[in-house]
C-alpha cells in the first residue's frame, strides 16, 4: 500500500499524518482527524456536501486525495467561526433565516457562501444561486438559504462581527 507523510494546515492548525494514497481528503478529515462537520453525500463530486476551502477556494473534498493537500491550507465548517464558542456572521444568518433543516448539506453550503462573500460583498440573488448551484439541498428548496446569504452580506456591510444590534430580518 502506498503510504505518504503529509503536513498541512487545517483551520489554522498544522497537522501531520501518514496517509494511504487512495484516502480522499474528506475521509481524512472525517475518519482520521474526526472533523465530522464535513459530510459525505455522494463521493462522486455532485452533491457538494463535502465542500471545504482549499487555499481559500471552495472545492469538493471527495475529489481530492489527502496526499494532494500536503502543504495546503484547508478550512472546514469547524474553522468558520471566529472562536470556539461563537458563530460567524454567515452562520448566525443561517440561524436567523432558518436556512437549514436536517443540516446535512449546511457545512458545504456555508463554505460555498463564505467564499462568495469573500469575493463579492453585495451579491445579487443570481450570484448567490450561482455560488450554491453545486451544493444540493433536499430540505429547504434553497429559499431560506438564499435569504440567509443575502442577510449575511447586508450585515457584513454594516459590521464585521455578530452582535445583538445587527439588522434583523424585516
Amino acid at each position: 500500500m502506498s503510504q505518504h507523510e503529509i503536513a498541512l494546515k487545517i483551520n489554522g492548525e498544522t497537522c501531520t499524518a501518514r496517509v494511504p494514497a487512495r484516502l480522499t481528503l474528506v475521509d481524512f478529515l472525517r475518519e482520521t482527524l474526526n472533523l465530522t462537520g464535513t459530510h459525505t453525500g455522494c463521493e462522486h463530486g455532485v452533491c457538494g456536501a463535502c465542500t471545504v476551502l482549499l487555499d481559500g477556494q471552495p472545492v469538493r473534498s471527495c475529489l481530492i486525495f489527502a496526499v494532494q493537500a500536503a502543504g495546503c491550507e484547508v478550512v472546514t465548517v469547524e474553522g468558520l467561526a471566529p472562536d470556539a464558542v461563537g458563530m460567524s456572521v454567515l452562520q448566525d444568518s443561517f440561524c436567523e433565516e432558518h436556512a437549514l433543516q436536517c443540516g446535512f448539506c449546511t457545512p458545504g453550503m456555508l463554505l460555498s457562501a463564505h467564499a462568495l462573500l469573500q469575493n463579492n460583498s453585495a451579491p445579487s440573488e443570481e450570484d448567490i444561486r450561482e455560488a450554491i448551484g453545486g451544493n444540493l439541498c433536499r430540505c429547504t428548496g434553497y429559499k431560506q438559504i438564499v435569504q440567509a446569504i443575502a442577510l449575511a452580506a447586508q450585515r457584513l456591510s454594516v459590521a464585521n462581527a455578530p452582535t445583538a444590534d445587527l439588522p434583523k430580518r424585516p
Binding site: 457538494g48 465542500t51 482549499l54 450561482e130 455560488a131 448551484g133 453545486g134
Partner: peptide, 8 residues
C-alpha cells in the same frame, strides 16, 4: 461544472 469543480 460549478465554481467548486472549476477551482480544481
Amino acid at each position: 461544472g460549478h465554481v467548486q469543480t472549476r477551482n480544481r
